[in-house]
Design a binder for these strands. Structure first.
Length: 580
DNA sequence: TCTATATCACCC
DNA sequence: AAACGGGTGATATAGA
């Protein structure tokens, strides 16, 4: 059951209010000690509060979605004890299964057939907390009671789950990672919010400008509910007028996906090409839901352990790294600060090389340019060839390598390369011939996953593949989940070392430091990332690359769409000042 | 008019 | 039957 090393085990919950993009404002806390049943209830919103429980090394706190609780600890300046997060453990337990009542505390309780009394006015209480203060005495009691009801539920859940928990990893990795998550969520990402405000304000004008440059008569785009929408039927009429045959789906609908559109635009040029650019540009230009706090930082839930592979899956609408990449120009360090985007080089390729034990693949990784190395190993590029002399062929081998990691077939690779299935087949054959050990391993993974219906990653993250198993998903899972484990370790090491980590991005981190300290911060980050990779893949550390952005530089320099939009904004503000 | 579903765009 | 993994979210369309 619960390891005896923990003298006291506190089920704990906070209620807090918070603005989108802002930091949590703790309202109250309830904690109950598992063995003694000692109950602590504190109201926190009326001034400075020191921690009512003298936490030390022999305390364990148990929470559901602990990053929220730890976020409150951080705001209150309390020291943080060891953490068991039953959300992370519930995800671990049921990963790959569809759970009937969701991933929340109630869902986990219902999953374990626990009674969920007092759950009926959850929404009401959540609203009350979100509303923020001041609160009447009755409201304070309501919130504390509600908070306590969650703690009672949590205690039941702990009782039920304790014997299933892999304690060393649950506390030592996953709980510890939830602390790192809280720290990263607190740091957040500096945003050029003036620019963001401008973009939001002139949004429709920007869009109108972009649309009208291409479709002045509104032949394809319709003005509806205050904005332009691409209308398929109008586009079909235009194609008819222009006598253009267009690929259709089996159901007879126009195929408007990027590949088809790109192909048609390339062949036809003219208005089709312009509309293609426009569609690409307009896509995902949604900025209203981006969560930017009053201190001009993008903060949102990082949604740890959300995917089957254990990756974080923050909301694409709320998280700047979820938006189209040209919008990263909005990421800008404040005066005197610098940012660095540090990512593992060819992370999944390196993981595959290690896990499969394929010597050729390891050699290719160690060469520094796995794609070129593969092309050389396959005899497609001479030993003295370089990225510069054999760029095109290297790109083909690169696409092949990346595709294989996702389980691509010859047909898919052919389309992707635009070179046909026959050539794609040749590339895949070269991959299989060159990396024989990798393929033998991958075959074993598929067989094992299919037969056993479950896979496990280096530190015990697991996933069930019982329902509708997809062989390509099974083959990819070990690489992606090991990547996620490595990322968790690096996040733990980095935040515990005091580095200001703004956020994780699957195989990368954004960090922040004073401009004069950024080089050292990058070096330390690269060091912890190397350590995390070597702990995950003993004897096979992975390299990382770093991209440093110093004030007043901004992220993602050179994105054409960014420059175009900025140019339009200048034009718009000039037009405004002339009108005035 | 609202909701469910399909399709597609973006991210790593 | 098709065959590119893990995701979130917007939009169009169909159906109630």
């Amino acid at each position: 059951m619960i390891p005896a090393t923990y003298a006291r085990v506190w089920c704990i919950d906070f209620e807090f209010s918070h603005q989108p993009g802002g930091l949590p404002l703790p309202l109250c806390m309830v904690a109950r000690e598992h063995r003694s049943q000692e109950l602590v209830r504190v109201w926190l919103a009326d001034g400075v509060q020191s921690c009512p429980i003298p936490f030390n090394k022999s305390d364990l706190i148990v929470a559901y979605y602990a990053s929220a609780e730890i976020g409150c600890f951080l705001e209150l300046g309390w020291s943080i004890p060891a953490v068991l997060d039953l959300y992370a453990e519930f995800r671990w337990l049921t990963c790959g299964e569809t759970v009937p009542h969701g991933r929340g505390l109630l869902g986990a309780m219902l999953f374990h057939n626990l009674p969920t009394i007092g759950a009926e006015h959850k929404a009401e209480m959540r609203e009350l907390a979100l509303r923020g203060g001041p609160y009447s005495e009755d409201e304070k009691i309501d919130l504390l009671d509600y908070c306590q009801s969650d703690v009672d539920g949590l205690a039941l859940l702990l009782q039920e789950m304790a014997h299933k928990v892999d304690w060393p990893r649950a506390v030592g990795i996953r709980g510890r990672y939830m602390i790192a998550v809280a720290r990263m969520e607190k740091v957040g990402i500096p945003i050029d919010s003036k620019n963001l405000t401008k973009m939001i304000k002139h949004w429709e004008e920007l869009k109108t400008d972009l649309v009208q440059a291409v479709d002045p008569d509104g032949e394809v785009y319709e003005w509806k509910d205050n904005h332009f929408v691409f209308k398929q039927d109008r586009f079909a009429l235009m194609l008819k007028r222009m006598n253009i045959p267009w690929p259709k789906s089996d159901a007879g609908k126009l195929l408007l996906d990027e590949d088809t559109f790109r192909g048609m635009a390339r062949c036809l040029g003219g208005k089709i090409a312009l509309i293609h650019d426009l569609r690409r540009g307009l896509a995902e230009m949604k900025l209203n839901s981006l969560e930017v706090g009053p201190d001009e930082r993008n903060r949102c839930m990082l949604s740890p352990f959300a995917s089957k592979t254990g990756r974080n899956q923050p909301s694409n609408a709320k998280f700047i790294f979820g938006a189209a990449s040209w919008l990263r120009g909005l990421i800008q360090p404040k005066k005197g600060k610098a940012l660095a985007y540090v990512d593992w080089s060819q992370q999944e390729f390196g993981i595959a090389a290690y896990l499969s034990g394929d010597a050729k693949m390891q050699e290719a990784y160690l060469s520094g340019d796995p794609y070129l190395a593969f092309a050389k190993q396959a005899g497609a590029v001479p030993p003295d060839g370089t990225k510069e002399t054999h760029g095109d062929i290297r790109n083909q081998y690169k696409t092949c390598v990346l595709g294989v990691q996702y389980g691509i077939g010859a047909a898919g690779l052919g389309v992707r390369l635009g070179l046909g299935e026959c050539w794609a087949n040749h590339l895949l054959k070269m991959h299989k011939r060159t990396f024989q050990e990798f393929w033998a391993w991958s075959d074993r993974v598929e067989a094992w996953g299919m037969l056993r219906g479950e896979l496990e990653s280096p530190f015990g993250w697991r996933c069930s593949f019982h329902k509708d198993p997809n062989p390509r998903s099974i083959r990819n899972w070990p690489m992606q989940s090991a990547g996620a484990e490595m990322m968790r370790l690096a996040a733990i090491y980095a935040t515990e070392a005091g580095l200001a980590v703004c956020c994780p991005v699957h195989d990368a981190f954004l960090i922040e430091a004073n401009t004069k300290d950024i080089s050292e911060a990058v070096a330390r980050m690269q060091q912890v990332m190397r350590k995390a990779s070597e702990v995950t893949l003993p004897g096979f550390p992975l390299r990382s690359d770093a991209n440093v952005i110093r004030y007043p530089e901004r992220f993602g320099a050179g994105a054409p769409m960014w420059d175009r939009v900025q140019g339009l904004l200048v034009k718009l503000s000039k037009r405004k000042s002339v009108a005035v």
